[in-house]
Nucleic acid binder design. Structure first.
Lengths: 182, 182
DNA sequence: AATTATATAAACAGACTTGTCTGAATATAT
DNA sequence: ATATATTCAGACAAGTCTGTTTATATAATT
């Protein structure tokens, strides 16, 4: 039966999102996506002309979802730059230390795929902008951003939250020591 | 003609090393390895019972090669913790911003492959130990280690050396401010 | 001299890969 | 009512993937 309700594209994206995150991009085949999304292969290629185009759409959507969750989490927090580390703890618990979708893709793609690189760069520059806005000082922001990035990677590698706690404490003392009130 | 000179295993490792670095692990097939190494497929499976086992051997060898080049580079340097960033600049130029082989593998593998994870963890804990030895203070070492890690990632993502220079400067001022002589 | 270790080529298995195409059906828009 | 957009199932192409097996050859060890 033809399901003509225009959520076909959504179902593709939702399923691809889940599978790319769970298994990685190269480990996920088109056939698995269409099978689990319950759509026809021709429908996928009607909406996306290649797997690479689906990849770009996936990263765009992931960026939107991530940002939404991120800023929602921070809404009622006092020190948002530090609370970012708490967000990371929450995400690690939810996704079993899967790490950053964008850094994962960075390792699975090549610089020739410019549109893919663009989406990764865009996500990361957005995150850096957040720290710059919160901390006012650019070099301090780059510093805390770096600790945040390494918190993602190190907690993925160690498969526990200790690196996040530890780097949050380091970030805290660095931010503190820059405060003019001290 | 049978080449019975016991460098077959070496040729496999040398070729796999090159291809895994240039193309990534999952993007490199067994057939390409045997073809470019000029050996028979049965010879590969004589020395390595699976591609995963080859992966582990590759990471072990890569760790040895990396460490050798790293400590050789640092031998005549004064501030070795800071000179590590210069090493990174050199490597980026040589390998066209391919990034860290171990972090790349981290994104291409899964935690179920315990031996693979072990090699990645081993490499990174060795690097952290280096910073701890050089900087004496553990939390400072973890901080500089984090900047170093992000320098690898960010320069790969931006495909230029600016992040390395910038993070080296940040590292410098952080190390400076911890010195008791100030 | 006999055994064992290492190497070869090449076929084979069985599954998977991305992407195209056909022919039909159903919606939506004009 | 007619044109256009969307969806379907499923076959097909042309290749790739990891790994096994066979049968043979050579080198090293005992």
């Amino acid at each position: 039966m033809v399901q003509h309700n225009q959520d076909v594209k959504d179902r593709i994206l939702i399923t691809a999102d889940r599978l790319f995150q769970e298994q990685g991009f190269n480990e996920t085949g088109i056939n698995q996506i269409i099978s689990e999304a319950n759509i026809a292969k021709a429908s996928l290629y009607y909406h996306f002309k290649s797997k690479e185009e689906l990849c770009v759409a996936y990263l765009q959507r992931r960026n939107e979802i991530w940002n939404k969750a991120f800023y929602e989490f921070l809404r009622n927090k006092n020190n948002k730059a530090l609370a970012a580390f708490d967000f990371l703890v929450e995400r690690n618990s939810m996704d079993n230390f899967r790490g950053c979708s964008f850094l994962n893709m960075l390792s699975e793609t090549s610089p020739e795929k410019k549109l893919v690189y663009d989406e990764i760069q865009n996500h990361k520059s957005g995150l850096l902008l957040f720290f710059e806005y919160e901390l006012k000082e650019k070099e301090l922001a780059y510093l805390i951003y770096s600790l945040f990035e390494n918190a993602i990677i190190e907690s993925k590698l160690q498969r526990n939250q200790e690196p996040v706690y530890r780097l949050k404490k380091l970030a805290e003392s660095l931010i503190q020591s820059k405060k003019p009130s001290n």
